[in-house]
Design a protein around this nucleic acid. Structure first.
Lengths: 254, 254
DNA sequence: TATCCACATTGCTATAGATCAACCATAACA
DNA sequence: TGTTATGGTTGATCTATAGCAATGTGGATA
């Protein structure tokens, strides 16, 4: 058994008004409040009855570390909402190489690619830690898209944002040198995924390398450089960012 | 003056039922039939009155080769429809490097990025040949998005497709060797942009390099290799693909 | 406690691709 | 007709990064 990396409180839905004792099956908990507050709250625009429609018959599944949740190139008709745990979203490219385009944690929403376009999955989603998630039938999503304008706007916004992220990644991965890319990966982990400072990553060096488009050996070497420069500290799976400005500088200079 | 690369007939809207003699100002011509037939016909879902609303007050502008149509990082409120000519869509990345993510020709539609997200342009669009285009206020687009469901679906589909393209480009540019990337660029030019076989490109080698993520010198060398291997022929700005299967093989093997 | 096993690390070598510099071709123009 | 400019081509280096191989390490299992 792998060590529990997340805080125990993750199991509870923060800010969730439980309708029943069994939080797992509480609509309000599972699919409304459980989405990230603020910007990315995709479902905030749904009425209560729409939410119930969406959530009705959804599958709540638990995946073990390493398991594939949705496989690239299959035509899955599901959309994934993560309730707990960490998943990686990656493209299986040429010559067996993988490219991790995104990590998804609690309350994240992953639409597997071509909604309204045949539903062919553009990437693989797999569990890094144990993942509790809901699989929502994507046809329900498209139906709500048509019925609720505000929701449609949110979904489009979501896609537009994803677009921007990909475009950004394209530039970073093709135009920056390795140190710049590793700096970006570290800043992403700290500020977008774990949101704490010494953070402990359930990812392997290979994963970090796949996020930064390099080999694991190269990644390790850059990490070593950062350590000796006093930019970061590492203890096993835990990474502490000592000099964030320094990293940002390196990121900026490519 | 640059030589006229396009067929003269480009000025006329193919398949356009002129309502007036002056085709330039014919609604039906400029913004409905002028979009690519079939798959990518974004506006086909609009009613006549919606189309008129969209088109009313649109600006028809002519750009000279090299001119910037929309500049990255500005918050343009326009969406561009190309009526004639060729434009390049590129990201201005780090250290002065450019990455051309797409070429846009007759009837193509370019939504500059973050529709519904503050309208900050994610890339620069600039004219390669002389470009005749319509600038449509993007708020009109978002209004129609809310009012017409079928149009909303088309727009989302459009974004999803763009997403898929970017994801694909990400893999190609980061995981393939130079020959594979150049092969992809050539196949893209032949099959998606010019649709003829000896095709004459108004692009410089630098542009081709920016599409393939390499230096112009490297691009020229690969092109030379392809010539001596009998895969292609080049005469000045004209390229002929002799062995398409061969190129596809190279693309596949990375 | 010993033995695994997966992963991390380090050093050495090979190479894809960039960079630099020179030269060539073609077209515009005085 | 010569001149300048712009882009294309080629060759000679240099370097960032991959690939390979050996060794280290810490947690799990017996």
């Amino acid at each position: 058994m792998r060590e529990e990396i997340h805080q125990k409180s993750d199991l509870e839905c923060v800010g969730c008004v439980k309708l029943h004792d069994d939080c797992e099956k509480t609509l309000d908990c599972c699919c409304k409040n459980c989405f990230k507050d603020g910007e990315i709250n995709l479902l905030k625009s749904l009425e209560q009855n729409e939410l119930e429609f969406l959530v009705e018959g959804k599958q709540q599944i638990i995946y073990k570390p390493g398991e594939t949740i949705i496989k690239q190139s299959t035509s899955s008709t599901y959309v994934v909402c993560i309730r707990k745990g960490l998943a990686k979203v990656f493209v299986e490219g040429v010559k067996g190489k993988s490219l991790i385009v995104r990590l998804a944690g609690q309350h994240d929403f992953i639409s597997g690619g071509d909604l309204f376009n045949g539903n062919v999955q553009q990437f693989t989603i797999s569990a890094v830690t144990e993942v509790h998630c809901c699989l929502i039938t994507s046809s329900k999503l498209t139906q709500l898209f048509i019925e609720n304008n505000r929701f449609a706007v949110e979904l489009l916004r979501n896609h537009a944002r994803q677009n921007t992220n990909l475009l950004n990644k394209l530039v970073v991965l093709t135009q920056k040198y390795m140190p710049g890319r590793v700096a970006d990966t570290l800043l992403y982990l700290k500020n977008s995924i774990f949101c704490t400072n010494p953070f402990s990553i359930p990812l392997t060096r290979q994963d970090l390398a796949d996020m930064s488009n390099m080999t694991k050996e190269s990644l390790v070497r850059i990490l070593q450089q950062f350590k000796t420069s006093g930019l970061i500290k590492t203890r096993g799976n835990s990474i502490e960012i000592i000099n964030e400005n320094g990293l940002q500088e390196i990121s900026r200079n490519g």
